[in-house]
């Protein structure tokens, strides 16, 4: 079965069982998102993709499209909300863009550019978080983790390793690694894992590669994420 619904007045076809997000992606309509990656089961945690569907606020990634549904996506009100959510993410961690190798190809940045965020403005939390450089090929900088759980899902559902987990609760929730020491180097993680290639920010990065593409010529430096799409899909193309 299939049908159609509308996003900001544009008619979008869908197959039964498709989420608003998936139908939008297929129709090349951009709905901002961070924790969503069509390769994995929808999560609904970042809330960036919240749209209104027949007036009700829902996450586009976890809400099924239905016939005749009227979805509002890029309204002033929704974009303002998204900017607030982005600001919360920025102040929650330590996002020092000028010092980050992922800068320019970072989805958190890219979505913030798209939504017109000039500054995080809230009070910064400056949490004290560690960097795990124990693995020979991959480095984890927990300062940049936004808890999208894409690495958790990729390692569990694709790699079959469950290297990553979430521990703690509330503002103390944090990414953990399954190994006797809790460090990546002692885990079953491999740089060829899917989990190494899904991080939307600079939390999980390959070692020994720095600034191969100069700042200013990176994925989102020239064009908006609404045009070029998620960074993970580009990495898959590069690698594969």
């Amino acid at each position: 079965m299939s049908g159609s619904f509308s996003i900001d007045g544009v008619t979008v076809p869908f197959e039964t069982g498709q989420s608003i997000m998936d139908a939008a992606l297929a129709a090349k309509i951009y709905i901002p998102h961070l924790c969503h990656n069509p390769e994995f089961q929808p999560h609904g945690s970042c809330r960036l993709c919240c749209v209104t569907a027949n007036g009700r606020t829902v996450a586009a990634c976890t809400t099924l499209a239905t016939d005749g549904l009227e979805v509002a996506n890029e309204t002033h009100e929704i974009t303002t909300r998204r900017r607030l959510l982005l600001k919360l993410l920025f102040v929650e961690g330590n996002h020092v863009c000028p010092a980050c190798e992922k800068s320019g190809a970072c989805q958190l940045q890219a979505v913030a550019y798209h939504c017109g965020m000039l500054a995080p403005e809230f009070v910064h939390f400056y949490p004290k978080r560690a960097v795990d450089a124990s693995h020979p090929e991959t480095i984890i900088d927990f300062n940049r983790c936004i808890l999208c759980e894409l690495c958790v899902r990729a390692s569990r559902d694709h790699d079959g390793k469950s290297v990553f987990n979430i521990s703690g609760r509330g503002i103390d929730a944090h990414l953990t690694i399954d190994s006797p020491s809790g460090r990546l180097g002692d885990s079953r993680f491999s740089a060829s894992d899917k989990a190494a290639r899904v991080c939307p920010v600079g939390a999980i990065l390959p070692k020994h590669r720095g600034y191969e593409i100069p700042i200013g010529r990176r994925l989102y430096d020239q064009e908006s994420i609404s045009q070029v799409g998620d960074v993970a899909s580009h990495r898959e193309q590069e690698d594969g």
Partner: peptide, 22 residues
């Protein structure tokens, strides 16, 4: 609520901490 938030979604996880602070 700051103490009891599960930490899954952005607005509640960060929002409850921010409300407490403010």
């Amino acid at each position: 609520f700051r103490h009891e938030s599960c930490g899954f979604c952005t607005p509640c996880r960060v929002g409850t901490a921010m409300l407490t602070k403010q």
